[in-house]
Amino acid sequence: MSFPAVVKPASRHSSSGVETVRDPAELRAQLDAYLPHETVLVEEKVTGQEFSVESLVQDGRVVFASVTRKETTESGTRTFVELSHSVPNELDGVNEVILDANRRMLERLAFGSGIAHAEWRVDGAGRTYLMEVAARTPGDGLSILYSLATGVPMEPEIIRIALGEPAAYPAPRRYARQVYLEHEPGLLGDVTVDWPGISPAWVGEGGLWPEIEPGAQTTRPPCVPCSCSRTGAPSSGRCTARTTAP
């Protein structure tokens, strides 16, 4: 095989254990780091911007598909932890290419009815590479981002597809972005928000996100505490996370 390569434990989530290896020695060392029962994938590393496509398909017909742009930690490390999601993708020249590849992929899979979450990369030559696809809703806060960007939740349409009822979902009308706070390795001790009228909301192990209503078209775009970045917060407030050594 060629290097660099990406090593991925198939049964984990949130990019846990996904690493870049540069040569056979690093590959052997990385494989030794996994548990004996784990299934591990070794793949060609594709350099390029990462995206995902959320697709609603009914009786083989794509009734909705949209491109989400992602940023990960890979630029400064060997890992691929996601740092932000932008809905919809605002980079020029790639949406049509990705959506066309995504449509052909669903046709090749004979995808019938349901929701598909596919992850793609586009290299410098504009070629698309499928990294993975699953018949599931998107993770993290992407469902909320689409609710904010379109003005309506996606879940009722997924249920209509499951029930065989006619389904439709609007294209995004505005932008929404989720940004994770970068921090030093350690145990999270506290999060403080210096923002008028705003307090942190903890998602926790249950994964229940707070209700975030889309604002009116005339309202100034808000900044939600769980979506602040260390460099993107405006001067009117800031969000900081404190960690202690492991």
Rank of each mutant, 00 (worst) to 15 (best):
V81Y: 11
L41E: 10
P153A: 12
P214V: 10
E184P: 04
M1T: 11
E165Y: 02
T218A: 15
I161Y: 00
V57N: 02
S86Y: 07
A33Y: 11
V42H: 11
Q30T: 15
T137P: 02
P172V: 06
E96I: 01
E74T: 11
A29W: 04
V6M: 09
T73F: 01
S113R: 01
K70V: 08
V7N: 02
T73H: 04
G126Q: 06
I212K: 12
S199T: 15
G237A: 10
H85W: 08
K45G: 03
G206M: 12
V94I: 13
E107W: 01
D140L: 10
S16H: 15
P210F: 14
R28E: 15
T240Y: 00
P138T: 03
R242S: 12
I198C: 06
F80V: 12
E50F: 02
A233M: 14
E38M: 12
S199Q: 13
A101D: 05
P210N: 12
S52A: 10
T192D: 13
P24R: 10
R108K: 13
G60C: 12
D92H: 10
A29F: 05
T79Y: 09
S52V: 04
T128W: 07
D92T: 06
L188D: 08
E38T: 11
S55A: 07
T77I: 12
A162M: 02
H13N: 12
S2L: 06
V67M: 00
F3L: 03
A171T: 12
M1F: 10
P36V: 03
L83V: 04
L187W: 06
R173H: 06
L187K: 09
M131N: 10
P36I: 02
T20N: 09
G114K: 06
N102A: 14
A135D: 08
N102Y: 00
E54A: 10
D23G: 12
L99S: 08
E96D: 15
R177P: 04
T20C: 13
L145Q: 07
T192I: 09
E157H: 08
V133P: 03
S199H: 13
Y169A: 03
L188T: 14
Q178W: 15
D140Q: 14
G93C: 02
T244P: 00
T244L: 09
E107Q: 15
V6W: 04
P225W: 09
P225R: 09
I159C: 03
R177E: 13
L208M: 10
A176V: 08
F111K: 04
M1W: 12
T47L: 05
P156M: 06
I159Y: 00
P246F: 01
P172H: 05
I198M: 11
E213M: 09
P138L: 04
V21S: 07
S75W: 11
L91S: 13
A216R: 15
L56N: 01
G93I: 03
I115K: 00
T231S: 09
P153M: 03
A216C: 13
V81N: 02
T73P: 03
R22D: 10
P172R: 01
E90C: 10
P214T: 12
S52K: 00
D190P: 05
N95S: 07
S11Q: 09
Y146P: 00
P156R: 07
T137C: 09
S229C: 09
G189D: 13
Y169M: 04
P88H: 01
I198S: 07
D123M: 09
L188F: 15
A125H: 11
T39L: 15
A29P: 05
R12C: 15
E19M: 15
H37A: 13
T150S: 08
E74M: 10
W202H: 14
L56W: 00
